[in-house]
Amino acid sequence: MPIEYYFSLALVMFLCGVCGVLFRRNILFVLMSIELMLNAVNLVFVSGSTFLKNLDGQIMVFFVITVAACEAAVGLAMVIALFRRYGTIKSEFFRILRG
C-alpha cells in the first residue's frame, strides 16, 4: 500500500481528534479525542517505520502509548476529582484559567 494512504488515514483521525477537543463540552470526550490524536500520531510512526525499514518508529510508539496511559490515568483521576468537587464535568463550567 502506498504510504500516503496511511498518512491520510492518520490525518483524518487526527482531524476528528482536534474537532473533538475543540467542540465537545464534556471533558470525558475531550480526553477520548486526545487519545484519538495520539493514535493518529502512532499510526504515522508505525507507517513510517515500516516504510523506512527502521524500527525506531515502533519504539516511539511504545513511548507514546506509555505517555497516553499516564495522561489518561491522571486525566480521568482529575475528572473524578472535579466531578466530586463541582458536580459537573462540563468544560465551560471551569473558568479558573481566567485568574
Partner: peptide, 17 residues
C-alpha cells in the same frame, strides 16, 4: 488588555489550533 481572556478552555484551544 485581559478582556479577551474568557477562561474558556475551548476558546483557547481554538485560538491555539
Amino acid at each position: 488588555t485581559s478582556f479577551q481572556m474568557t477562561g474558556s478552555l475551548h476558546r483557547y484551544a481554538v485560538v491555539f489550533i
